[in-house]
């Protein structure tokens, strides 16, 4: 009993500290987080659809899911690069990071349009 209540308390404290820590992140990072969350959510919807209906045009399914996953991954990369707290990318200007992000997205979606069939 004591253990469960203490773990419950711990969990509550954890959520609290998580929330407070996250609220400290800058707005632009939060926007990126939202974008990532949306992309992952879309990917999940497609997977659920595939599981319930079937994966017949497999290339369409693949390009749909990988488009979402790719978008999310690239956004995470962008988030890592523009994060001020990240010491590894101090000398990388955010404009450059964004240009790289756009280029990578362009390549990704050109491939996906080609693969969509």
């Amino acid at each position: 009993m004591a253990r469960t209540s203490s773990s419950k308390e711990n969990a509550q404290a954890l959520f609290h500290s998580l929330r407070s820590a996250y609220s400290a992140t800058p707005v632009n990072l939060k926007i990126i987080d939202l974008y990532v969350g949306f992309a992952v959510f879309t990917a999940l919807i497609q997977v659920v659809y595939m599981a319930s209906v079937g994966s017949f045009p497999f290339n369409s399914f693949l390009s749909g899911v990988l488009s979402c996953v790719g978008t999310a991954v690239l956004a995470v990369c962008l988030r890592i690069q523009v994060n001020k707290e990240n010491k590894e990318f101090k000398d990388l200007p955010p404009e450059r990071a964004f240009a790289d992000f756009v280029l990578c997205n362009l390549v990704l979606h050109l491939v996906i349009m080609n693969f969509l069939g």
Partner: peptide, 27 residues
């Protein structure tokens, strides 16, 4: 490190898609 993430994660997604474009590899 986060550099490792940047080096690997985009490669898997983009690489898989690009590899699937080659007819002999495909799915």
């Amino acid at each position: 490190s986060s550099r490792l993430y940047i080096a690997y994660a985009p490669l898997v997604v983009l690489g898989t898609l690009l590899a699937a474009l080659v007819p002999v590899v495909g799915f």
